[in-house]
Amino acid sequence: MTQQEIIDQPRTPARQLNLRFSSTRRGARLARQLAIQQLTEWTGLPHDSDPALAVAHVTAELTSNAITHGRLPGRDFRLTLLLLPDAVRIEVTDPRPESRPPHSVAELAPPDVTSGRGLLLVEAYADCWGCTSRDAYTKTVWAEVPLRTTTSS
């Protein structure tokens, strides 16, 4: 569960979805809802399964960061979902390549502040995550959420 700073090429997906959303709270909410819906359609998992809830949390955090830190007036963010053999890769692309997440969770906000620790959720739910810039105009923050369900003993 570490961030990867390298330019990461995802494994070959079985299915893929690309959508653009307005850089607003409504856009972020719609992206989260659509990510859950698409996951359940692709996999047959229920909406309240562990993987679906993890996808919801990770998508919410990445899209929230895109509209908060990666927003430029008049520019949208892009949500890409890739169904991999054992995971779902969530990619959120925004128009602010200079506004990158910290290199490690150790660089996140101190415990006495009320915000700035959302990437800890990403770290907890994802097998791996990172940030890439494929051009000079955008950055993509991505995370791979495992499809395995946790079993209680």
Score class of each variant (00 low, 15 high):
Arg117Cys: 00
Gly44Lys: 12
Pro110Glu: 09
Glu41Ala: 11
Ser104Cys: 01
Arg25His: 01
Arg148Val: 05
His47Pro: 02
Glu5Lys: 14
Asp50Ile: 08
Met1Thr: 13
Asp127Asn: 09
Arg20Met: 14
Ser49Gly: 05
Glu91His: 05
Leu108Thr: 08
Cys128Ile: 09
Gly70Gln: 14
Ala126Ser: 13
Pro102Glu: 04
Pro110Phe: 06
Ala56Asn: 15
Pro10Phe: 04
Thr63Phe: 06
Pro146Cys: 05
Asp127Val: 15
His69Met: 04
Asn18Ala: 14
Asp8His: 08
Thr151Tyr: 12
Gly27Ile: 10
Leu147Tyr: 05
Ala87Ser: 15
Leu45Asn: 01
Lys139Thr: 09
Gly27Met: 03
Ser153Asp: 15
Thr68Arg: 12
Leu120Arg: 03
His69Ser: 05
Gln4Arg: 09
Ile90Trp: 09
Thr138Arg: 10
Leu45Gln: 13
Arg11Asp: 15
Asn18Phe: 07
Ile67Ala: 03
Cys131Phe: 01
Arg15Ala: 13
Tyr137Asp: 15
Cys128Ser: 11
Val55Cys: 08
Glu144Arg: 12
Leu30Pro: 02
Glu41His: 02
Leu81Asn: 05
Asn65Glu: 10
Gln33Ala: 02
His69Thr: 09
Ala14Val: 08
Ala31Pro: 06
Tyr125Lys: 10
Asp127Ile: 14
His57Ser: 07
His47Lys: 14
Ala14Gly: 09
Asp76Met: 03
Arg29Thr: 04
Asp135Leu: 11
Asp94Trp: 01
Pro111Glu: 12
Gln16Arg: 12
Arg32Trp: 00
Trp142Met: 06
Ala143His: 11
Thr24Met: 06
Gly130Ile: 01
His69Tyr: 01
Gly70Cys: 06
Thr140Cys: 02
Arg89Thr: 11
Phe77Trp: 00
Leu147Met: 07
Ala56Cys: 13
Asn18Ser: 15
Leu84Ser: 05
Ala60Leu: 00
Glu107Trp: 00
Met1Val: 13
Ala106Trp: 03
Asn18Gly: 08
His47Ser: 15
Glu61Ser: 10
